[in-house]
Design a protein around this nucleic acid. Structure first.
Length: 448
RNA sequence: GCCGCUAUCGUCUAGGGGACUAGGACGCCGCCCUCUCACGGCGGAAACCGGGGUUCGAAUCCCCGUAGCGGUACCA
């Protein structure tokens, strides 16, 4: 069994493409040979930058154990010309100058549902001759057999007038030469499959087995694109998602497990994945569910691992202590800095929080807390907690009345990791300094 | 227009003639936990597109409609 992933040469890897790659990769883990080929027959759009982006995305996802990738247009020109000549000489294809107007005129005469048939000419583009009778059957593991009657099919153009070949021709010949047995790709290719099969048939070749995956849609039900937010793997990475969560989510988006598990690591998926259980209907990409799933994966990471990833993501170092007290509150890596950045960069500026919690009562509380923490020794979490709870008891108020002013003094906002943990991570000196500063800044603020 | 694919809670899905009072997950609502935000726990609302068949029996099989999506390029 040989499978291949043949993405467009257009830079960023679309999440739909990522899912296709994932399914191919899963098949490879089950024993298939996995081939990667950039399919580019359109004036070499496969720039080194574009190819690198695709390869990077696959590497990030951990799907990079394919056979050495190759680019169709660049390496296959001569072979394509050879097959083209073979088809023309054999009477399976012909040159024709007929374009859109001629095709429309033909259909006006013979009926809208009749496929275009042209006459052989001395020059022009190359069209494949489709038999008038019969049908081409696409054998698909996911959908069963789909039949296309030849009468409805136009003689497809397989090469331009300048001799450069077109996708439906190139992909058929490339798959044939690469010995591909199973083609797993998006459903958008289903309607063009008979053209590819017809090329193969003219060559006397049987054609592979297909598995056309349902398309991915955005929240509005339309094909997923940039305007839906993160539509590419690189955007997902930049948004702070973990590759293992993205893989888990993508596999299950369109693939139903027999049991009811949702969080299934990619390794566990290898044994259970089965093309016959891939869903037939298009799926909407739901970023909220991905966020939830990503949170689960974040919490399963060790503190060391999570710290390393966050240091790469933020470009900062020395994050470990802050990570340890924040990990329960993150869904994505991008959530970390807004939550814990104050530990490193000083309090945030949230006027509403200051106004609410640093009023006269709040300042009185801060003075008590300052005194209490000043006396704590050793400065451990238990001791800090006892000291702060002592203030709560002494003032006979709800814990929140004490903890929130402290939180705002330290973090500058009403949301932060646990207050005892935060105080300990900041240390006595920094904590007291921030409380002093909060008292001063409030005192200096002009009275309303 | 023509050709094709698809159709279960808002979303992802389980379901392959009786086990369906249609199960799980995200999201949503309520309660609990609680120093904020989260996490976690418990509970709840929420679906078989419509119409005909086949059958003792249909979410499941067939047909027709409808809707959504895709293809229809000298794009990939």
């Amino acid at each position: 069994m040989r499978v291949r992933f043949a993405p467009s040469p257009t830079g960023a890897l679309h999440v739909g493409g990522a899912r296709t790659a994932l399914y191919n990769w899963l098949l490879a883990q089950q024993g298939a040979t996995f081939v990667l080929r950039i399919e580019d027959t359109d004036r070499e759009r496969s720039t080194p930058e574009n190819v690198e982006q695709i390869l990077d995305a696959l590497e990030w996802l951990g799907l990079d154990d394919y056979e050495k990738p190759w680019i169709s247009q660049i390496s296959r020109r001569e072979r394509h010309q050879e097959v083209l000549r073979q088809l023309i000489d054999g009477g399976h294809a012909y040159r024709s100058t007929a374009a859109k107007p001629e095709v429309d005129a033909y259909k006006a005469r013979h009926g809208r549902e009749r496929g275009f048939r042209g006459e052989a000419e001395a020059e022009g583009a190359v069209r494949l001759r489709v038999p008038d009778d019969g049908e081409t059957v696409v054998r698909d593991i996911i959908r069963g057999e789909t039949t296309f009657a030849h009468v409805h099919l136009d003689d497809p153009v397989i090469a331009r007038a300048d001799g450069s070949v077109l996708y439906n021709f190139a992909v058929a010949v490339d798959d044939l030469d690469a010995g591909i047995t199973h083609v797993v790709r998006g459903e958008d290719h289903l309607s063009n499959t008979p053209k590819q099969l017809l090329v193969l048939e003219a060559l006397g070749e049987p054609g592979p087995l297909y598995a056309h995956l349902p398309l991915l849609h955005g929240p509005d039900g339309k094909k997923l694109s940039k305007r839906h937010g993160a539509a590419s793997v690189q955007e997902l990475r930049d948004a702070g998602f973990l590759p293992e969560a993205v893989c888990n989510y993508l596999v299950l988006l369109g693939f139903g497990m027999y049991d009811d598990e949702t969080i299934v690591p990619i390794d566990a998926l290898i044994n259970r994945f089965d093309l016959t259980h891939v869903s037939k209907n298009p799926a909407q990409f739901d970023e909220r569910k991905l966020r939830w799933m990503n949170g689960r994966y974040v919490r399963d990471l060790s503190v060391e691992d999570l710290t390393a990833r966050l240091e790469t993501f933020t470009g900062r170092t020395g994050l470990r202590a802050a990570v340890e007290i924040s990990r329960e509150k993150m869904q994505t890596l991008a959530d970390f800095w807004p939550l814990a950045g104050f530990i490193f960069d000083g309090p945030a500026d949230d006027p509403a929080a200051r106004e609410k919690w640093l009023d006269d009562d709040g300042r009185a509380v801060l003075r008590d807390v300052h005194a209490a923490l000043d006396a704590v020794d050793p400065f451990t979490q238990d001791a800090v907690q006892a000291a702060l709870e002592g203030v709560v008891a002494a003032r006979e108020v709800k814990p929140k009345q004490i903890f929130q002013p402290v939180r705002v003094a330290l973090a500058g906002r009403a949301i932060s990791p646990g207050i005892f943990e935060t105080v300990v991570v900041l240390g006595r000196e920094e904590t007291l300094r921030r409380i002093d500063r909060a008292l001063q800044s409030v005192a200096k603020a002009p009275a309303p």
